[in-house]
Design a protein around this nucleic acid. Structure first.
Lengths: 221, 221
DNA sequence: TAAATAAAAATGAACGTCCGTTTTTTATCA
DNA sequence: TGATAAAAAACGGACGTTCATTTTTATTTA
């Protein structure tokens, strides 16, 4: 048999990784067996080793692929946010965080596996210097907001944005994976409004808030 | 051999659970073997089954014990907070959350095991109705704060408090378990100040804030 | 065009080890 | 001695990985 095309190999790997991921996130890394992965991917046990040297290599490949997917989604989210400190945009950030969590909760389950079984070796970089990354992404907007005096004195826009970002993700993760079940006593819509409000009032200057109140939609205020 | 005293049995169980916990949190539930648990506890493999019917029973016993410990610590934390919406007290809540996370990160690792391998069966109750629990705990204070007009209009004190509570824990968990390493670009002290500030400004009425500013310590404003 | 070739891919049995649990044996002390 | 605890041995099965073998198919040859 001649060598398979890269595309064919890639396709097969996708099938294997989909099966493996499903097992990893439902039972953990060690509890998922190579036999079950093979069965799920409709590949023979031995053939798995033509595609990956070890079980851990499958795990790593899944993560690397997923990190790219999520990174891209995040980039597209940030690209949609022209004015990161505007309450309406903050709220949209929250909305999109919710969508991401609900559509890709696997990603965070893999992260918990990594925390537990690999000391978060594969995901550490996601949190490292996250504030500075936001500072770069929104450098222009943060700068202009500061010049305009949009922010309360002593408030660093990048830190605030990161805090809001983390809070949104944490809210939806608790709801989705930890059995929160309306843990704030609100539905998602209301919770988003509430969180956005806290961050808006918590970080914007009185002048900016006044401006915003004028044009705000009712649900927000 | 005569029957062991309950105290002796309890002591032995503590040793077994300590060894098991150590293994669970470093490698996950399935990767930790009964043989290693026995070795760690200096008990024979077979003898483990005189104390626990199954491996999962060990896990459950660890969790039940830990939940009690953490619940007690939380209760004592809340007992120290006479005025939950006062910025200084919010900050102290954050401090104590940090201490709890750093001293008992095992607890959250066990929670991640539970999320992964048991759909969070054993921990769900921790998040269920958490806001309403705070509403009860601080019923008097929230009521009086509302009467005094301490809060911005439309802000529910219990929700706000829960939000702050979650944010503090999440901050320290990211730092401790997810490789955050000053992910807000601040040290813990500064991060606490920043988070407290956001929540204070985000939720307190202008009058209350003015009052607070007068007597605030410098670091906070 | 059809058969032969050969390298790659796929297979599944086999390996040695370890798993959770059970059973049997031994030790202990009123 | 007799009940109980502890240790040891044994159980069947599952684990990740290896490997000799078979199957597959693009290319070469006739």
């Amino acid at each position: 048999m001649p060598k398979l095309s890269d595309a064919a190999i890639g396709k097969r790997k996708d099938v294997i990784e989909a099966a493996a991921c499903e097992l990893f996130i439902t039972q953990g890394f060690h509890a998922a067996s190579m036999r079950d992965i093979a069965k799920g991917a409709e590949v023979s046990l031995g053939n798995l080793y033509n595609y990956y040297p070890t079980k851990e290599a499958i795990f790593e490949s899944i993560i690397n692929g997923y990190v790219k997917v999520i990174d891209d989604k995040l980039k597209s989210i940030f690209a949609q946010i022209d004015e990161p400190l505007d309450p309406e945009n903050l709220r949209r950030l929250g909305e999109m965080a919710g969508k991401l969590v609900n559509e890709h909760s696997d990603f965070w389950l893999l992260m918990y596996i990594d925390v537990l079984e690999f000391q978060n070796r594969h995901f550490r970089k996601m949190f490292n210097g996250i504030t500075d990354r936001f500072r770069k992404i929104f450098a222009k907007q943060f700068d202009e907001a500061a010049k305009r005096g949009d922010l309360r004195t002593g408030v660093d826009p990048a830190t605030v944005f990161t805090t809001a970002y983390m809070q949104f993700f944490n809210y939806f993760l608790v709801e989705k994976l930890f059995g929160g079940n309306r843990h704030l006593g609100l539905n998602d819509e209301q919770a988003l409004n509430c969180l956005t409000k806290i961050f808006a009032y918590g970080t914007l200057s009185e002048e900016k808030l006044a401006k915003f109140k004028k044009q705000a939609n009712k649900a927000m205020v």
